[in-house]
Design a protein around this nucleic acid. Structure first.
Length: 119
DNA sequence: ATTATGACTTATT
DNA sequence: GAATAAGCCATAA
């Protein structure tokens, strides 16, 4: 069964800006085995800047609690992780996603079927 | 308030 | 297809 897609706890909300809280909360709605994109998130939280989303996630204060590794770029390339856009951390991100059942193409892009669009 | 930065995106060269 | 520029918006200094 899917893990309880919790939301951000009040404590967590209190530690970040309202915008980040909204982003993280939305992120917690992404089911295990799926990913979302910066753009979908940005749209979901009501701004039109994926860059702002990236900013919100780059210093993720709630590392494993909030599945920040379930966010990829709009073209379904891997995006960044732990403050880096490439390197060993990215490799770890891929491993995590694979461990959750996300499929990758040979390009290192995520399969379209694994993208969660906040339907 | 103003400036600089960035895990982005799109258009242009 | 890679490199650059411009647009975007929240954050930190």
């Amino acid at each position: 069964m899917q893990p309880a897609l919790g939301r951000l706890t009040p404590s967590q909300r209190a530690k970040v800006t309202p915008f980040r809280a909204k982003v993280l909360d939305a992120l917690c709605q992404v089911p295990r085995g799926k990913v979302t994109t910066y753009k979908y998130l940005s749209k979901h939280v009501g701004c039109n800047s994926s860059q702002a989303i990236g900013q919100a996630l780059k210093h993720n204060p709630f590392a494993p609690e909030v599945p920040c590794h379930r966010v990829v770029k709009t073209d379904r390339t891997i995006g960044g992780f732990s403050g880096s856009i490439s390197g060993p951390k990215i490799d770890k991100k891929i491993s995590l996603l694979r461990g959750e059942g996300v499929d990758f193409s040979e390009d290192g892009t995520v399969e379209a079927a694994c993208v969660y669009r906040f339907e």
